[in-house]
Design a protein around this nucleic acid. Structure first.
Length: 421
RNA sequence: GUGAGCGUAGCUCAGUUGGUGGUAGCACCGGGUUGUGGCCUCGGAGGUCGUGGGUUCAAGUCCCAUCGCUCACCCCA
């Protein structure tokens, strides 16, 4: 029986890794423009951290976590909790009033894998801690949009407000009242949600529930004046920044800690997985974790989903690794010269390669093409005798002579000059 | 946790109502070009048909089980 990767865990092979690097580079660059600084936290945390932040009654905590029961530790299902833990543990808040942080890495959830959903998946996660201003909410969404634009991914942005502890309970009661009236028409899931998390009935996909919910009381009508002002200011700022969005009063989030602003970047191109990025404000969460009473807001982008969309939507060809010079050597003496030259070139910062198997020139040329070599230097017995190799431009197919006579280091300098011209 | 579908070469896949010898393309190796990649052409190598059992004169093909994968529900990035 063959040993294979475990279900829901995927290898990222060399042909794909360059795309990952490109996405991460683009993200880091844009995050830096917004003053975000990287933080890296462990993938393992005390189980209690996630239970207390994400919420005991959420699906994630109830049945999706990879937990070492005997050790009381869990592989992170999301990044926010870990970042806040680190923030609190190291007392970062005393250094400055507002922290802008990001992290990129793997998350783990024990769900049934399907398109765009894995058990180990990767997120780019951004958190701003210590700022309550609605402009920050809008700025984060604008940043997300900027990144998605840079990657050539088309999505739409939907926003909502979930209110705060001052106004959400009243809405919750109103909603329960309404749903209870129509209890008979609700699907079995929603009848259960009525007890556990009535808000989630709002984005039920069942057709009759969907219709029913259209006439349900709207959270937006129940917001307290502070929350209402906040939400208005968020939208105003989005308008100012030229970020388009759509109100979606039915959008709720699967994590308990969200307050006020929530948002999702969604697509219809990924089957059941609509959200490629999502987040929101969590103003009471730090205090709840025994930290300072600071507001926070953040969001995460799903790397695998971004990649699926890019493969589907992109017009340009994916990046490929290239080689500056391939040296094709014929015979042992030539191979010795080649290996010294290749090493000297690498010392100078160039990507140089050769083949040690002593195969035919044709085979070596083929290899040069395979590694996307810009130039190939051919060294055979004739060339050694004349102390001049043949330098071939692989694109134009033009060939010229290259002196092999001075010291190897000087040849490398010469070559570097030619390659950078 | 629930439901459906699919497992043939490294990859993508043919395989007709069960009928002898398992396709092809891509990729790989070699020749045509005795020292020149991509294109062309010729050849080569590469398989326990997921695994186990059953039906049958005969199973890649039908049945059962099992393992694996995929998609969907739920939920989520």
């Amino acid at each position: 029986m063959k040993i294979k990767a475990v279900n829901g865990f995927k290898d990222i092979l060399p042909d794909d890794a360059l795309r990952w690097q490109m996405i991460e580079k683009t993200a880091r660059d844009i995050f830096a423009r917004f003053g975000m600084r990287e933080i890296r936290t462990p993938v393992l945390e005390k189980t209690e951290l996630f239970a207390r932040s994400i919420g005991e009654a959420t699906d994630i905590v109830e049945k999706e976590m990879y937990t070492f029961v005997d050790k009381g530790i869990t592989m992170r299902p999301e990044a926010t909790a870990s970042i806040l833990r680190a923030f609190i543990e190291h007392g970062l808040h005393v250094k400055q009033p507002v922290h802008r942080l990001y992290t990129i890495g793997p998350m783990f959830r024990h769900e049934r894998p399907q398109k765009g959903r894995l058990r180990q998946f990767h997120q780019m996660d951004v958190e701003v801690i210590g700022a309550t201003e609605p402009q920050v909410d809008a700025e984060l969404m604008a940043m997300g949009q900027m990144l998605l634009d840079a990657l050539g991914i088309k999505v739409s942005l939907e926003i909502n407000s979930l209110g705060c502890p001052a106004c959400r309970p009243a809405f919750r009661d109103k909603l329960i009242g309404y749903l209870d009236q129509h209890r008979e028409s609700l699907c079995s899931d929603c009848r259960r949600r009525l007890e556990t998390n009535p808000l989630r009935a709002l984005d039920c996909k069942n057709r009759t529930c969907k219709a029913l919910v259209q006439d349900a009381p709207s959270i937006l009508d129940s917001l307290c004046s502070d929350c209402n002002d906040h939400f208005s200011a968020v939208k105003e700022t989005l308008d100012l920044l030229g970020v388009s969005y759509r109100d979606n009063r039915f959008m709720v989030r699967g994590l308990d800690y969200y307050t006020r602003t929530t948002f999702e970047f969604i697509t219809d191109a990924l089957g059941a997985q609509a959200a490629v990025g999502a987040g929101g404000r969590y103003d009471g969460l730090l205090k709840q974790l025994n930290g300072p009473d600071l507001p926070g807001i953040g969001f995460a982008l799903g790397m695998e989903r971004l990649i699926l969309l890019m493969e589907q939507q992109e017009d340009r060809t994916p990046p490929q690794q290239t080689t500056d010079l391939f040296v094709a050597a014929l015979g042992e003496k030539a191979a010795v010269h080649a290996s010294m030259l290749v090493h000297a070139l690498r010392r100078l910062g160039l990507a140089a390669a050769m083949d040690y198997s002593g195969r035919s020139l044709k085979a070596q040329m083929k290899q040069a093409g395979r590694v996307n070599s810009r130039f190939t230097l051919i060294i055979g017995d004739n060339e050694l005798a004349e102390e001049e190799g043949i330098l071939r431009d692989m694109n134009s197919q033009e060939q010229s002579r290259f002196s092999l006579s001075p010291a190897v280091d000087e040849q490398a300098q010469q070559m570097a000059a030619i390659l950078s011209a």
